[in-house]
Design a protein around this nucleic acid. Structure first.
Lengths: 219, 219
DNA sequence: ACCTGAACACCGTTCAAGT
DNA sequence: ACCTGAACACCGTTCAAGT
């Protein structure tokens, strides 16, 4: 009844919420366990009950990031049953790619955490979450092309190429090497090329939206 | 005559050298001004004479990284006068892309520093160095296709798509999301698709090396 | 199981002072 | 111009102790 313990099981989540806010504001360097404890109104040793060390908290943030990004991509990439598969496929790929880059723009520091360079030990939880994200790429592919299942090898290639394109754009935008607008255009361009390379029969050249020339001389 | 000052003008460089070693070993988090001062045998306040704060030192490392990567790419991407331009072009692009990814594998923490998410202020020196790296992409394009100058718009597109592909692969490999071997195969695949998309007349389909089929012997 | 609070070693940064 | 060394505020981490 009384609010004595102040935190009855939700301290972990509250710490993560505060951490996410600080991360967005000041970057990963600004995330301090003592500061988070202060914000939550607990002693500086309290976080230790939920995170063995600072890295464990950052890893938990990364896991959350992978999960949230995956959810968003699944929302955005859902099949539209009212439209022809062909017409909707490239659009869906492009929407997913755009959502990926948008995420990186809005949460650049979180994205950096999710793809941080691993010098030594890797967190198993983070690796699992990351693998889950990449698995959704494959799911989306299968969802949209049930009539035309891809060769497993090509499916993996497409997935990796897609991942490299969106992650590369995300990295360039997140580090401010290019603008958000440039990133959106870039990722559109990349997905267009990918789709046309792997599905040359789709969209028989609407004239005006093609690269310099057809990747395959369609005649 | 005596070696009293111990450091006569080279302390800055020595600090950076130590920092680079620590960076490789323990990541950016392990880089501490006080530790670097200790390694150089100076007082903990001495680095302040060369770097206004810790971030300034990290920025200087990033600048060095961009310069070193640019040099390497220029070495690797140099034109081979003994060969036909067509035959050597895709190979050169692929060599440059590979060198980029190799750099990211060997210096993952440095790469992370070079493409760190900017929450607030950006260092002008880092931006200049980064711009220099992207300029070398364009230089390499011009070097290899003097006979067939690209449309400026397509040149910029190619440069951005190339940058996204190599940086994306670098990020995936540096964060251990994929292996170094997968990264090499991926970047080969991506550059192959890019070259064939922008230069469809090059390499008129040697049958068996096209996208939907084998990517390239990954090793 | 969860949290407190003291203790320890280590930081970045500032600054008056030396050379 | 470059470096020293004290001072300050802030960390992460450990740990005995409380509930």
């Amino acid at each position: 009844m009384v609010e004595r313990p102040f935190h009855h099981g939700n301290l972990r989540a509250e710490l993560l919420d505060h951490a996410e806010a600080v991360l967005r504001e000041d970057g990963a360097d600004g995330v301090s366990l003592r500061d988070l404890a202060r914000r939550a109104g607990v002693s500086h040793g309290a976080p230790r009950s939920h995170f063995v060390d600072r890295q464990a908290l950052l890893d938990a943030l990364a896991v959350r990031g992978f999960e949230r990004l995956g959810e968003r991509l699944r929302e955005v990439g859902a099949v539209d049953p009212d439209r022809a598969a062909d017409a909707t496929f490239e659009e869906a790929v492009q929407r997913v790619a755009r959502a990926y880059v948008d995420f990186a723009v809005q949460d650049a520091a979180l994205m950096e955490l999710m793809f941080a360079a691993k010098t030594d030990h890797a967190s198993a939880a983070v690796e699992r979450a990351a693998a889950g994200l990449f698995a959704t790429f494959d799911e989306l592919l299968d969802q949209h092309r049930p009539d035309q299942p891809m060769d497993p090898h090509d499916r993996q290639r497409f997935g990796l190429l897609f991942a490299a394109a969106v992650q590369g754009t995300a990295s360039l935008v997140g580090s401010r090497r290019i603008s958000a607008d440039q990133g959106a255009a870039l990722v559109d361009d990349a997905t267009g090329i990918l789709v046309r390379t792997f599905f040359p029969t789709l969209r028989p050249a609407p004239a005006g939206e093609r690269p310099p020339a057809a990747p395959r001389s369609a005649g």
